[in-house]
Amino acid sequence: MEVRTIKVFTTVDNINLHTQVVDMSMTYGQQFGPTYLDGADVTKIKPHNSHEGKTFYVLPNDDTLRVEAFEYYHTTDPSFLGRYMSALNHTKKWKYPQVNGLTSIKWADNNCYLATALLTLQQIELKFNPPALQDAYYRARAGEAANFCALILAYCNKTVGELGDVRETMSYLFQHANLDSCKRVLNVVCKTCGQQQTTLKGVEAVMYMGTLSYEQFKKGVQIPCTCGKQATKYLVQQESPFVMMSAPPAQYELKHGTFTCASEYTGNYQCGHYKHITSKETLYCIDGALLTKSSEYKGPITDVFYKENSYTTTIK
């Protein structure tokens, strides 16, 4: 009895394709271990004539594949690729409408935090270190965002349907971005203890939790000093293409032309909904596939993004 075979390709990165001759009487799992086709788990399936010449994702289970996976995804987590594939199996079914010149995501599976993050990423200057993220990001900007969303979920250790947080998501993504040249110098002034300067680099240099107003941050924000008295913390120097200011959701007025974009969060910790506000020729609110415009805006804002380049204080 002759062994019926077909020729397929296996890959971990969709760049390096490895030619395989597979036995049609055995499952993919018996031949390769966990195997995925377009995100779908085909591990328990036997090869079919229609699979001839198709590319299958496999887990990096030998040295060659491990090197290829690390170079593309910059992670050695053995569960990463499987999590990416199972997320992709959902995100490829989502709709990605162009809204006001940006790629958004039609609401499904509690994905409003991903839509808000995706919209924000198209408006701030950011370059990702893992080629996987950078490639998928370019495709997302062009309207094909399924891979990018699935990668975000995998890097953030999230599953489809789980509630997510924009600030946490951005923080994970910033860790995989090139923020080497970003720098922030802060000064804390206390009447009792004097003053202390701190220099922050990388992710810490672009994120701040405690106030939404970048102007206020430049002037000074009140913080408790270690001595128990009130101290003032203010920005001395900022070198970065953008800054992200966050605070627990509270009524906040966004003035046209003073910011790049913002995240609105309605609801409580267990259950809520994100919308995205962007400042173009007027203010726009993007909620999944829905767009509304207004000249002014007041609502429960939790993150505001500002364009920056270089700032030095005039406070002496």
Rank of each mutant, 00 (worst) to 15 (best):
H18F: 01
T19V: 12
D23H: 06
D23Y: 09
T27E: 12
G33D: 01
T35R: 13
N49M: 09
E52K: 14
E52I: 12
G53S: 11
G53L: 11
T64G: 12
E68T: 06
E71C: 09
Y73D: 05
Y73T: 06
F80P: 03
L81D: 02
Y84N: 00
A87R: 04
L88Y: 13
K92E: 07
K92F: 07
Q98M: 11
N100M: 12
G101L: 06
T103I: 12
I105R: 02
W107S: 05
D109F: 02
C112I: 00
T116C: 15
L118F: 12
L119I: 09
L121T: 07
Q122K: 05
E125D: 14
P131W: 08
A132N: 07
A132S: 04
R139K: 13
A140E: 10
G143Y: 04
A146C: 10
I152W: 00
Y155C: 03
N157I: 06
K158S: 08
E162K: 05
E168W: 09
E168T: 14
S171T: 13
F174E: 04
H176R: 10
A177R: 03
D180A: 08
D180S: 11
V185L: 05
V188W: 03
V189S: 13
C190K: 03
Q196A: 10
T198V: 13
T199L: 07
L200Q: 10
G202L: 03
A205W: 02
G210H: 01
S213G: 01
S213Y: 05
V221I: 15
C227E: 02
C227D: 00
Y234P: 00
L235T: 01
E239Q: 11
M245P: 04
S246R: 05
S246F: 02
P249S: 05
Y252I: 11
E253A: 12
H256T: 11
T258C: 05
A262P: 00
E264K: 00
N268L: 15
N268Q: 15
Y269M: 08
Q270E: 15
Q270Y: 10
H276Q: 00
T278Q: 08
K280I: 09
C285E: 15
D287H: 00
L290A: 13
T302C: 15
Y306F: 10
Y306T: 05
E308F: 04
S310V: 14
T312V: 11
T314R: 15
